[in-house]
Design a protein around this nucleic acid. Sequence first.
DNA 1: TTTGAGATTGATACTCAATATCAAATATAT
DNA 2: ATATATTTGATATTGAGTATCAATCTCAAA
Lengths: 147, 147
Amino acid sequence: MNDIKKQFCNFLKNNNLLLTAQRECILNYILSTSYHFDAEQLYVQMKSEDPSIGRATVFRTVKLLESSGLIRKIRLGKSKSYYELTVKKKHHEHLVCQNCGKIIEFIDSGLEERIIKIAKKNNFKINKHAVEIFGICEDCFKSTKNK
Amino acid sequence: MNDIKKQFCNFLKNNNLLLTAQRECILNYILSTSYHFDAEQLYVQMKSEDPSIGRATVFRTVKLLESSGLIRKIRLGKSKSYYELTVKKKHHEHLVCQNCGKIIEFIDSGLEERIIKIAKKNNFKINKHAVEIFGICEDCFKSTKNK
DNA sequence: TTTGAGATTGATACTCAATATCAAATATAT
DNA sequence: ATATATTTGATATTGAGTATCAATCTCAAA
Ligand SMILES: [Zn+2]
Ligand SMILES: [Zn+2]
Ligand SMILES: [Zn+2]
Ligand SMILES: [Zn+2]
């Protein structure tokens, strides 16, 4: 069993929860993909692997995975929640193209430091933060100009 | 008619829309308050002033006001959308206490500059951005420690 | 190995926020 | 007045997520 799975098992044990077949199956799947996903689309995927799995179970497991810290919720400007692994990839934020929907990830330590400073200045015990930038990506901008 | 109202009227004219009694009434109300609100709570308020107003009209008008740039959408970590005036107050971001729900507004020009730089570096034509910091406020943290 | 308390499941119904539909009412231009 | 376009409110519908609950599973203790 790899480290990430162990981490989830520990989380489960610490909370008197069990590692069930469904939970393991979902964990395996999200570890195998490494991009943004939402609970409904994860349900459809899991359903195709095991038609007996229920929607509620998938939604519940996504919550558990978020509580465990293995995934984090992102919004991407939509009404539903998206999620991404917090492990296997550095912490980053997102640029969202309002024209084509493309998501560009970026890492900016200056930005992260500023956020920590702001929290400190306000005596705020920071837990998480969300930074999202919306606009028009380079490709979309170019193709608009060409018209 | 004040400047802000004129701005909304221009927006309406430019889009072949009319300034109706309902729209004016809603505009007046949000100009008179200067804090975060959501569409449903605005509807309840407007209903109390004019019981004949419909929910759909309020939700539609909130959208119009957002398109016009007079208000902007913020999330505050909830599933519903909140809004706030973009005029009469400097652009700011939010700290959200996950314990008591308190919202702390802050202005940080360094943060704003970084965001603009990041967009530029990615050749991204920035339109808007969202920065929200979640955690525990000073008061909540103190009262936790005292236990 | 049984037993039983507690955890988990999937089906279903439900909530909540927001949107779509549409006929009636308003406004505007001629 | 008449034709055209916009807006309205009631209602139904969607979309995302949660609550309920009887049936099932797990596992430690007897
Ligand atoms: Zn694009
Ligand atoms: Zn990402
Ligand atoms: Zn607090
Ligand atoms: Zn604010």
